[in-house]
Simulated scan of single mutants.
Amino acid sequence: MDIEEFRAYCLSFPHTHEGMPFQGFFKNSRSILVFYVGKKMFSFFDIDKFDYCTLKCDPEVIETLREHNGIQKPFNLSWKHWISVALNGDVSDEMVKDLVKKSYALVSAGLSKKST
């Protein structure tokens, strides 16, 4: 899956929008593209590298998922609620899409109708 296909997939979910909120704050984070449902993020990646994405995840399945090659602890986020997923082929496109879908569902389930 290339960067445009991944981006289109993330944007295909209802009430989803994208942004680059870190451009003016952190030198190493200027190229981070974030996908939101309402005001809550569910996925993001570095557009300059596109080597992994970070996704919200059900805490009950995180440890099992991390046993899979290509799924690891995220950089600078809660290891209890987020995972980092390799986009280099270690994780199949189907599994990446499934994890994105679950991330979106997890975040959107926590929103009130007013915030979407």
Score class of each variant (00 low, 15 high):
3 I>T: 15
3 I>W: 14
6 F>N: 12
9 Y>Q: 11
10 C>R: 00
10 C>Y: 00
11 L>C: 12
11 L>S: 04
12 S>N: 09
13 F>D: 13
15 H>I: 07
15 H>N: 13
17 H>I: 12
21 P>W: 01
22 F>Y: 08
24 G>K: 11
24 G>F: 07
25 F>A: 13
27 K>R: 13
30 R>D: 05
31 S>Y: 12
32 I>R: 05
33 L>F: 08
34 V>L: 09
35 F>A: 06
43 S>T: 00
43 S>H: 02
44 F>C: 12
45 F>V: 06
46 D>W: 05
46 D>G: 09
47 I>T: 14
47 I>A: 06
53 C>W: 06
54 T>V: 11
55 L>E: 10
56 K>P: 11
57 C>K: 02
57 C>H: 06
58 D>H: 04
58 D>C: 01
59 P>S: 12
59 P>K: 13
60 E>F: 01
61 V>W: 08
62 I>D: 03
64 T>S: 05
64 T>H: 05
65 L>Y: 06
65 L>H: 01
68 H>R: 10
69 N>I: 12
70 G>F: 07
71 I>C: 05
74 P>Q: 00
75 F>A: 09
76 N>R: 01
81 H>K: 11
82 W>L: 07
86 A>Y: 03
88 N>E: 15
88 N>H: 14
90 D>P: 01
93 D>N: 13
95 M>W: 00
100 V>Q: 04
102 K>L: 02
103 S>Y: 12
103 S>G: 07
104 Y>W: 10
105 A>C: 04
105 A>N: 14
108 S>I: 10
111 L>F: 11
115 S>I: 02
